[in-house]
Computed example of a mutant assay.
Amino acid sequence: MLGLRPTTAGPAEATDDPLTAPDATRAVETVLERILDAHLSQARDVDPVYARDVAGRVAALVRRGGKRLRTAFAWCGWRAAGGSGDGGAVLRTGAALELLQACALIHDDVMDGSPMRRGAPSVHVDLAAMHRASRMAGSPEAFATSAAVLAGDLALAWADDLLTETALGTPHGPRLLHEWRAMRQEMVAGQYRDLHAQATGSFGADEALAIATLKSALYTVERPLALGAALAGADAYTVDALRSAGRCAGLAFQLRDDLLGAFGEPARTGKPVGEDLRSRKPTYLLAVGLGLADAAGDEEAVAVLSPAGAGRDEAAVERMRAALERTGARSVVESKIDELAGTALRTFERTGADDTVRWEFALLVERASGPAPRTAEGVR
């Protein structure tokens, strides 16, 4: 673990750099506003109906925010690799990541049938409501699914345009594009593996971790860190350390998200709780629960947690929660999160980043995964 303490002045005052990672998450809002305003203006020039119904909903989802963790990790990677001075390219890269996240959320909500996102109706649900209110012909659900796919595609186009423009304006553009292209492919692979596992109904803990890595850990932490490092011209050793630390932190983030999806509160998550359990989504939490139930001969828990388990109502979800508690699966996942977070912090030290940047990374890992284990030096 890090063994760091914050200075009296705090990390923001302990560096000559213009922004810290928390500052960057605020600064990217200004960048996003400017970009979204420009895209909405262009959309209105193309077609007012498309601008209102599709582009407007993409912009609204992005503006509703989220933690902006990807921006913060990109900034942290840039600073860990020695980046300083004008960080405009890093902020634009962060904005591109936020737009890419909007694409992923819109499409993911369609595939999962999720009704809410960031405290509001998900895009496809909102479009279905518009269809009904306007008394359009045809099926509201079919219309909304098709329109939401287009909305997600638009978010991806905006993200790609912004990242390409940023790459063209920096001497490190080829490296930036290499990381970006790899990340997009990993996201698609992870989403497909998720669908494949649900369709086959056969998965274990190792497969669940592989899906979580591809679908979330890489593009949430590892690739943003590497994108930031690329903009600083980082050497191979530093990039390797950042990727290793980022993969562990990203997995911890996803496992925390799995726990929140099962045991959290909608007011905190911005989406319904229990949806992953109801759909028997192949999460690490569910795989661990099934494995423990089988090893203990707990036939009731096996029946409740299995992909073919009966019931999709709230009572069934409650039985699944009870089984995850009874088998010890929830505790196992909590321990795994702590282990991954601790490994991420130790690995990050290999970058040689100064204490301020290391402290910021530790805070980001805590934001992403929940409180990290407390060390003898008091760092979390």
Rank of each mutant, 00 (worst) to 15 (best):
A43P: 05
A27I: 01
A43W: 07
T25M: 07
H39I: 02
P18M: 05
S41C: 12
T15I: 11
T20L: 09
R44L: 06
Q42R: 15
D16T: 14
L40G: 05
L32I: 08
Q42M: 12
P11T: 13
V31I: 01
T30P: 03
A14V: 12
I35R: 06
S41A: 10
D16N: 07
D16E: 12
T20Y: 03
V46F: 14
D53Y: 13
V28I: 04
A38R: 14
A12S: 09
R44C: 10
P18E: 05
L32H: 06
V31F: 02
V31Y: 06
V49I: 14
H39P: 00
P22N: 11
T15V: 09
A12T: 05
R52A: 15
D53R: 15
T30D: 03
G10I: 12
Q42K: 08
D23A: 06
A27T: 03
A21P: 01
L40P: 00
A51M: 05
A21F: 00
Q42Y: 02
E13G: 11
T25Y: 00
R34E: 09
A24T: 04
A38E: 13
Q42G: 15
D45W: 08
R44H: 14
L40S: 03
D16C: 07
E29R: 04
D37E: 06
D23H: 06
H39L: 04
E13F: 14
D47L: 09
D45A: 14
T30R: 10
A43Y: 07
T15L: 10
V54S: 07
D47Y: 03
R26L: 08
A38M: 07
E13R: 13
T15E: 09
R34L: 02
L36E: 03
A55Y: 05
L19K: 01
T20F: 00
A55L: 10
V54F: 04
E29I: 12
P11S: 15
A51C: 09
E13A: 14
T15F: 09
A24K: 02
A27W: 01
E13W: 10
L19N: 01
D23Y: 02
P11R: 15
A38S: 15
V31K: 00
A55D: 12
V49A: 15
V46G: 01
R26I: 07
D47A: 11
Y50E: 08
G10P: 14
R52K: 11
